[in-house]
């Protein structure tokens, strides 16, 4: 073997030793990160379930509120009808043009109307439940995506061999990632109306 060949062999051996040491260090890093990755992956289903529980519970609460709002609406509608009938009966009985009674009727009617309008405002506000549930669905979907990637990483690093990457129990989610409960939604709708009007312009 020539001197040159011996030098090259020595150099290759040195580089191989460095490479082996480097791979060894990398394996140590993999061994160190496996546990946190596994722990993070394990936490995703729990967090997802908790978020889904938020949606379920706000929906249950909203449904209860709607029960009450509907009852109030029905009672107020009955009151308005009853006041109208009472007014007619009193007028037919000859007590018309009594300013005191007229005012009383007007006040009852105005209060009932105001209550009915308020129930509609409550109902309008309860739309938050659908909008926030879409925001939660988006967050859950992102978490599921992270979980899939973490599982893939565990398989790549050899920490897991029997991990199915696609979770078959995951439900189909429908949401708008930009869903937003805009406080001033009247202005928002005006922008939409203007856009539609422009689209339809000949």
């Amino acid at each position: 073997m020539s001197i040159k060949n011996t030098e090259i062999t020595g150099q290759i051996r040195k580089e191989l030793e460095e490479l082996t040491a480097s791979i060894g260090k990398m394996m140590d890093v993999f061994r160190q990160i496996r546990q946190p990755i596994q722990e993070s992956s394990d936490k995703v289903p729990t967090t997802t379930k908790q978020l889904e529980r938020v949606t379920q519970q706000t929906e249950q609460a909203t449904q209860k509120m709607l029960d009450i709002v509907e009852s109030i609406t029905n009672r107020e509608s009955d009151i308005i009808k009853a006041v109208g009938q009472l007014k007619k009966t009193i007028q037919e009985g000859g007590v018309a043009n009594n300013s005191g009674i007229e005012k009383l009727f007007s006040d009852i009617q105005a209060n009932a109307d105001a209550n009915l309008n308020d129930t509609m405002v409550i109902m309008e506000a309860l739309q938050f439940q659908d909008i926030t549930s879409q925001q939660i669905e988006h967050a859950v979907s992102q978490l599921e995506d992270i979980d899939t990637k973490l599982k893939a990483l565990l398989v790549t690093t050899g920490a897991k061999k029997d991990v199915s990457l696609a979770d078959p129990v995951r439900k189909s989610r429908a949401f708008d990632p930009n869903a937003n409960y805009a406080v001033d939604h009247t202005t928002h709708q005006q922008d939409v109306d203007e856009l539609i009007s422009n689209i339809r312009k000949p």
């Binding site: 928002h188 939409v192 856009l195 689209i199």
Partner: peptide
């Protein structure tokens, strides 16, 4: 909105809406 109009909706409301 443009996609919905193209698909054939007659009008479009953004949630939350007023009665």
């Amino acid at each position: 909105i443009m996609q919905a109009i193209k698909a054939g909706v007659n009008n479009y409301i953004v949630k939350p809406f007023t009665p």
